[in-house]
């Protein structure tokens, strides 16, 4: 564990908490892409199956359980509790275009052709693009609430901080994982446009609004 890794995890946790509390307290999931949230639930489920096979640490178990439970809690809020507020007309990204390539790529490019390893690889590939339906929704409506922008910023920062962690680990321990690094870079690059808007608009108190 190093500082970049810890900050990355905290940023990830913060993103999830921001999203849950936004939906819960505003009693609305307007502006949130349910499709991205479905993809995240698939990501955590595929990746954290090792919860039942290996013990790493209490920290590791607790974080995995929190990520899993909160992803399903988010789906419950969107699809059941506040379903009337779900903005489905703007959430039109076709997730099969992300799911199918992630499945094929995981079957082809992995460290070992075993069930757990392929599922881990699939979750890494899928996570790198899982935010696309949400970014597509923001670009379609041309705007995002500030709280949604904070959520996206925290979620985007998390993998960026993991990249620094991987640099640090390569430097101190001499080991690296190319699958995680390439996917992590792709994931972070997808947020770049948003990061720019966040810094230039949202942090200056303006609403995130895209030029028409």
């Amino acid at each position: 564990m190093n500082i970049f890794r810890l900050l990355g995890d905290l940023s990830h946790l913060l993103a999830i908490m921001i999203l849950l509390q936004k939906i819960f307290y505003s009693r609305s999931c307007a502006g949130i892409s349910a499709k991205s949230q479905v993809l995240f639930a698939i990501v955590y489920t595929a990746r954290y199956l090792d919860l039942v096979t290996v013990y790493v640490s209490l920290y590791n178990i607790s974080m995995k359980v929190v990520f899993l439970l909160s992803s399903y809690a988010t789906l419950y809020l969107i699809y059941l509790k506040f379903r009337a507020t779900y903005d489905r007309n703007h959430d039109t990204f076709r997730i099969e275009f992300l799911l199918l390539p992630a499945i094929v790529l995981a079957l082809l490019i992995n460290h070992q052709f075993s069930a757990l390893e392929v599922l881990w690889t699939f979750s890494i590939y899928l996570e790198s693009v899982a935010i696309l339906p949400q970014l597509f929704m923001v670009s379609k409506t041309g705007e995002a609430e500030s709280i949604t922008s904070h959520y996206l910023f925290a979620l985007g920062s998390y993998r960026g901080l993991y990249i620094l962690n991987w640099f640090y680990r390569y430097w101190t321990e001499g080991h690296y994982d190319l699958i995680a690094i390439v996917a992590g870079v792709v994931q972070t690059v997808l947020y770049c446009d948003f990061f720019y808007l966040y810094v230039t608009k949202v942090l200056k108190g303006k609403k995130l609004q895209l030029p028409a």
């Binding site: 995890d9 995995k64 881990w120 890494i124 993991y162 080991h175 995680a180």
Partner: peptide
Amino acid sequence: SSLYLVKDEL
């Protein structure tokens, strides 16, 4: 999982 990265990462 993942063989090469320690299993600790999330």
